[in-house]
Design a protein around this nucleic acid. Structure first.
Length: 571
RNA sequence: CGGGAUGUAGCUCAGCCUGGUAGAGCACUACGUUCGGGACGUAGGAGUCGGAGGUUCAAAUCCUCUCAUCCCGACCA
């Protein structure tokens, strides 16, 4: 492509709507343009990167034996009513009517459509296993779209659905997809981790997310630094019970006045004890009405996913109202404690490991010190209630957990029979008996990957594309081509040669000053830059610089073509 | 959907408090100079001041309503 014929400008100033770096750089480089909240146009340069991501996905899906399909973005409501998700999905599902007042949705996902296809086409166990995938536009009417293309409402997703006769086959298909995902993200040059994940609303059993590590990521993940390679979403990572036995009590319980000291930090500072020696009590709504108390160590965070799975606790988790707390304890939040409670109590393992701890007295402006489980109150039910913390032992068996941020770019599930059962997707087995198929589903946020790659690969000057997904592999920068015939001639010749060799090459033939060209090439993040100047031609060496390098290299003029061809990524 | 903020030229923003002829920088057009790290000069084009209503002799500025966008809480690829 010739830059002089490309009508979309880069900008120096950061658009005020962009908060994260990838969004800023994508707008500044002119990769995307916003049309409405969470809805973007991909410009030619941006689209090139997007297409490369898609192509890698396609190649690896095909390699894994999956079959590409393209399902409709607009889907009839009947299918959603059949699966029950017409009611379940809520306002995130964009619903519309056609001219005959028939209900439709713009698909946020395609389980219903694929299951419908499967039940029509798949009749025999002989046809299994099979995996269908597509790369398709989705629409989810997010409460709060943000971060540009990272959390858009309209986005491109690769979704795949596999069908199996039994659980063992599903496991095989799942493992195959897991391997394919590892290959894809590796090929894209991303630093990522497969992490154990909650299955959330989609349901099912085993599930892993593929997280691209980036400080701006929306997900917290727990990663082991040990040999066990353990990695899990923070909301799922189990906090192991402490191995140390609880120390013996040394002093008797006392009530102390703590006027106005409502938070753990306040109380700990006021009483001059570390927060690790305190226990905080959180009151949540019970599943049958009433409230349930949860005790965790003062410095720990409650894990909502773990809590809402406890018997008697409402799911999704809701904090109890102030009125309910008052009614149960006779005390306001801020001074709650587990002693003499009149409601069910769960306590986190770490809280239970404490002796002589500080907690609320269930009396305004008072706390208790030197409280001991078993002595001052009955031993409550021990469970895992908290988020793991930096330095906790890894559940994988070796090493300690580190808390990192990640961008979820892929998620694979073993769905089991949830959808196939609801929609009667069966095949006949060897005995001629109908069997409800097992399903797996495997998603990738294609548009999000582009943002994630930038999030992970940039510097002060701009984007640094991993080469396999760069819009262009090479940028040729002629200097003063308008004055120098030989610069112009060599640039054209190199451009033609590289193009013929299949290299994605961009010729910056704009009549612009060198500084502008360099700055734009760096903002755009093109991996290989070759400068064509009179100086270089006269010396026989052309100036080359890799986007990640800090200094130039001199390349003999007669070798540049071969070296650049060699640099172009191969599939 | 709650809480906070912002809407003025394509972009970044000033002007609003204290009402009186709509501004700057970047970008764009023309010409000249310049030409290895986002040049300079001259001239120019470009805005229903988000929209509607009100107050006033007079509204970008004050008031009311409305729409949109962004940020903090909720979901997920």
């Amino acid at each position: 492509m010739r830059w002089s014929r490309y009508p979309i400008n880069t900008v120096k100033e950061t658009p005020s709507e962009a908060e994260v770096i990838s969004h800023q750089l994508m707008l500044r480089a002119g990769l995307i343009r916003r049309l409405a909240a969470g809805i973007y146009t991909w410009t030619p340069f941006g689209l090139r990167a997007l297409r490369k991501v898609e192509q890698i996905i396609r190649e690896e899906m095909d390699r894994a034996g999956a079959l590409e399909v393209l399902m409709p973005a607009v889907q009839p409501a009947e299918l959603w009513q059949e699966s029950g998700r017409w009611e379940q999905y809520g306002p995130e599902l964009l619903r519309l009517k056609d001219r005959h007042q028939r209900d439709f949705v713009i698909g946020p996902t395609h389980e219903e459509v694929i299951t419908d296809l499967a039940r029509r086409e798949l009749k025999s166990y002989r046809q299994l296993p099979v995996n269908f995938y597509q790369i398709q536009l989705k629409f989810r009417d997010e409460i709060r779209p943000r971060f540009g293309v990272m959390r858009g409402r309209e986005f491109i997703m690769k979704d795949a659905y596999s069908f199996h006769l039994d659980q063992a086959s599903l496991q095989e298909g799942y493992d195959l997809m897991r391997d394919a995902y590892v290959r894809m993200f590796t090929r894209m040059g991303l630093e990522f981790r497969p992490v154990k994940a909650d299955t959330g609303s989609i349901g099912g059993t085993a599930s892993e997310e593929f997280q691209v590590l980036a400080d701006s990521g929306e997900d917290a993940i727990a990663v082991s630094d040990g040999a066990d390679q353990y990695a899990a979403n923070l909301e799922l990572a189990p906090a192991l019970p402490p191995s140390d036995r609880r120390p013996t009590a040394t002093s008797s319980m006392q009530k102390v006045a703590t006027p106005g000291q409502k938070t753990i930090e306040d109380v700990a500072a006021f009483l001059k004890v570390p927060t690790q020696r305190t226990v905080k009590l959180l009151m949540v709504e019970g599943s049958e009405g009433g409230v349930v108390a949860l005790a965790i160590r003062g410095d720990h965070e409650l894990n909502a996913i773990k809590a809402q799975k406890l018997p008697g606790v409402a799911s999704p988790l809701r904090m109890a109202s102030r009125e309910a707390v008052l009614a149960t304890t006779g005390c306001e939040p801020g001074f709650l404690g587990p002693v003499d409670l009149k409601c069910p109590l769960y306590a986190d393992h770490a809280a239970l490991a404490l002796a002589d701890f500080v907690c609320g007295a269930n009396e305004v402006d008072h706390h208790l010190t030197s409280v001991n489980w078993g002595r001052d109150l009955p031993e409550p039910t021990a469970t895992d209630l908290r988020n793991v913390a930096e330095g906790d032992p890894s559940p994988g068996g070796s090493g300690q957990l580190r808390i990192r941020r990640g961008i979820e770019v892929g998620h694979i599930f073993q769905l089991g029979r949830k959808y196939s059962e609801a929609m009667q997707a069966t095949v006949l087995d060897e005995a001629g008996k109908p069997i409800v198929m097992f399903m797996g589903c495997y998603g990738i946020g294609v548009t999000r990957i582009v943002a994630a790659a930038i999030e992970q690969n940039h510097d002060a000057a701009g984007i640094i594309w991993p080469e396999p997904i760069a819009p262009f592999t090479v940028v040729l920068v002629p200097l003063n081509a308008n004055k120098s015939e030989k610069v112009r001639a060599l640039s054209e010749q190199l451009y033609a040669t590289l193009q013929q060799a299949g290299v994605d090459v961009l010729l910056d033939d704009r009549d612009a000053r060198p500084g502008v060209k360099f700055a734009d090439a760096e903002l755009m993040g093109i991996p290989h830059r070759l400068v064509i100047s009179d100086r270089g031609i006269d010396s026989g060496n052309l100036e080359y610089r890799h986007r990640r390098a800090s200094a130039n290299e001199e390349w003999p003029a007669d070798e540049v073509v071969n070296r650049l061809i060699a640099a172009h990524p191969k599939a």
